[in-house]
Design a protein around this nucleic acid. Structure first.
Length: 570
RNA sequence: CGGGGCGUAGCUCAGCCUGGUAGAGCACACGGUUCGGGACCGUGUGGUCGGAGGUUCAAAUCCUCUCGCCCCGACCA
């Protein structure tokens, strides 16, 4: 492809709204173009990378036994009402009406549609399992889209769904999908890790996320050298070290102490000369159905996802100040579990292991010391609801966990029968009994994978594409296209490279060398072939890798072979 | 949805406080000199100052409303 015949416009300045590096570079390299918040045009160069990623995904999904189909992006409300998610999904679901005032939504995901397609066809265990996938543009009306392709509202994603007659069959497919994902991200040359994950609103039992490690990642993952890895939303830990010894003798019974204005654990701890770990932190939350009280040790934080799961709630939020006073009978910042009535109390196991503790007195400007969990209050539910921290013991081997940031590029779930039951997606088993199919679902963000590749592969000058995702593999630069010998040599090389099946992008513009070099660095094709006046006089071209930019003088006649050799080494 | 900020040329921004002929750099067009790491000189094109209403002799500038965008938070297969 010749630049002068292509549709490529690089930007000298970063767009003012681009915050993360992948957004900046993809925009500057003329690959994406924002149309509205979280909505992007994939310009020709960007689309090639997306297509290359999609091709890898297609090949590996097919090899793993999944069959491609395509489902609509606009879906009727009826299906969503049937699964219950029309109510449950909230504002993230973009709802639209047609000219007849019938309700539809723009699909954020396709469980309903695929389940409907399968239930109307598969009736027997003999026809199972089934595994179908699609690559489709989806829409989620995110509260706050950001980071370019990493968190758009409209985005391209591959999703696969599998249907089974047994848990064993689901597990076999789940493992096959997990292996396929590893091959996909390996082929994309990404550094990633698979971690245990929470299943979120989509429901289900087992779940893994594939995380590309990058400092700009929106998720935190806890990992251990033993191989344990989990999203911090999900990560568990071994038992923590107990709090330091109580200074002096703790009171035998709860005693009120005056703590004027000290509402945070840190303030009260400093005021009373205790360690934060001596405290019980009390958070009052509000779910769709109830108020609840969450207790964690003072040096811990409440993990909202774990708490939500423990309470069995769909949504959760911190209670307002007025509600806190209503529930606790005291001021915000002075809440504690002693004497609370009429609310469910969820305590972290670390709280119940404390021999003696300090906590709020449910009275403005007072705290209690000498509180013994189990004696002075009880919990309705004891569950792990704390956020795992770096340094906590690994739940498997006890070594300290490390916490890293990651970009979630894939997420696989064992869904179970949530959708098949709700939507009567049944089959007849060998005894003629009707059973709901057991389902799995497997998502992979295609656009996000491209963005993650840029996050992981760039330098100060621009993108350094991994070969499999590069829009073109070789950039050919004619430095002085107005010099006939140079132009002829470049044209010849262009023809030969094309003939040899090399994906070559030919910068034939009438620009100064600096402009061409800088654009080449910005766009980041893996191999560069430069033809200049001095080189041509000596019958030489100059090859280099974007990765290291080390110049390799090469006779013009060997340039094609050398380019292919360099590519083969990538 | 709460808090904060920004909408002026294709892009990045100044001008606004203190109202008085719409600016710069880059990009683009033409001419010339240049040509291995974002050249230089000259000439030129390009703007309903996001939109609507108001105040005023006069509004990019002040006021009101509205739309869009961004940041922090809450939220999130």
């Amino acid at each position: 492809m010749r630049w002068t015949r292509y549709f490529l416009f690089t930007l000298r300045d970063n767009p003012s709204d681009a915050e993360v590096i992948s957004h900046q570079l993809l925009a500057r390299a003329g690959m994406i173009d924002k149309l509205a918040a979280g909505i992007y045009t994939y310009l020709p160069l960007g689309w090639r990378s997306v297509e290359k990623t999609a091709r890898i995904v297609r090949e590996e999904m097919g090899a793993a036994g999944s069959v491609e189909l395509m489902m609509p992006c606009v879906q009727p409300a009826e299906l969503w009402q049937e699964s219950g998610r029309w109510q449950q999904y909230g504002k993230e679901l973009l709802r639209i009406k047609d000219r007849h005032d019938r309700e539809f939504c723009f699909g954020p995901t396709h469980e309903e549609v695929i389940t409907d397609a399968v239930r109307r066809r598969i009736t027997s265990y003999r026809q199972l399992p089934a595994n179908l996938f699609q690559i489709q543009t989806k829409f989620r009306d995110e509260i706050r889209p950001r980071f370019g392709l990493m968190r758009g509202r409209e985005f391209i994603m591959k999703d696969a769904y599998s249907f089974h007659a047994s848990a064993e069959s689901l597990d076999a497919t789940y493992r096959a999908m997990e292996a396929a994902y590893r091959r996909i991200f390996d082929r994309c040359r990404l550094s990633y890790t698979a971690v245990e994950a929470d299943t979120g609103n989509i429901g289900g039992s087992e779940s893994h996320e594939f995380m590309v490690l990058a400092s700009t990642g929106e998720d935190a993952v806890a990992a251990c050298e033993c191989g344990y890895g989990a999203n911090v939303e999900k990560a568990t830990t071994g038992a923590l070290a107990p709090p330091p010894p109580w200074p002096g003798t703790p009171p035998a019974k709860p005693e009120e102490v005056h703590t004027p204005g000290a509402t945070s654990v840190a303030d009260v701890a400093a005021f009373l000369r205790l360690d934060p770990a001596h405290f019980i932190k009390t958070m009052i939350v509000e779910s769709d159905a109830e108020f609840a009280v969450a207790l964690v040790r003072g040096d811990d934080e409440v993990n909202e996802v774990k708490l939500k799961n423990a309470l069995g709630a769909a949504h959760l939020q911190l209670a307002s100040e007025a509600k806190v006073e209503q529930v606790s009978g005291g001021a915000m910042g002075f809440s504690g579990p002693v004497g609370l009535k009429g609310v469910r109390v969820v305590a972290d196991p670390e709280v119940m292991r404390m021999a003696v503790a300090a906590t709020g007195a449910n009275r403005a400007d007072y705290h209690l010391v000498g509180v013994a969990p189990g004696r002075d209050f009880t919990a309705d539910l004891v569950a792990d609801i704390r956020v795992a921290r770096a340094g906590d013991p690994c739940p498997r081997c006890g070594k300290p966990l490390v916490v890293k940031r990651g970009i979630e590029v894939g997420h696989i779930f064992k869904l179970g029968t949530k959708y098949s039951k709700a939507m009567a997606c049944n089959y007849l088993d060998e005894n003629g009994g009707m059973q709901p199919m057991i389902m799995g679902c497997y998502g992979l963000g295609v656009g996000r994978t491209v963005a993650a590749a840029v996050e992981q592969n760039h330098d100060d000058a621009g993108i350094v594409w991994p070969r499999p995702l590069a829009p073109f593999e070789v950039e050919l630069i004619a430095l002085n296209p107005d010099v006939p010998a140079v132009r002829d040599a470049a044209e010849k090389l262009y023809a030969e490279l094309s003939e040899a099946g090399v994906e070559v992008f030919y910068d034939d513009r009438d620009e100064r060398p600096g402009v061409k070099f800088n654009d080449a660095d910005l766009i980041g094709f893996p191999v560069r072939v430069v033809v200049g006046k001095k080189g041509v006089e000596q019958g030489q071209a100059e090859l280099s890798l974007r990765r290291d930019r080390v110049k390799i003088p090469t006779p013009l006649g060997d340039a094609v072979a050398k380019a292919r050799e360099l590519l083969a080494g990538l």
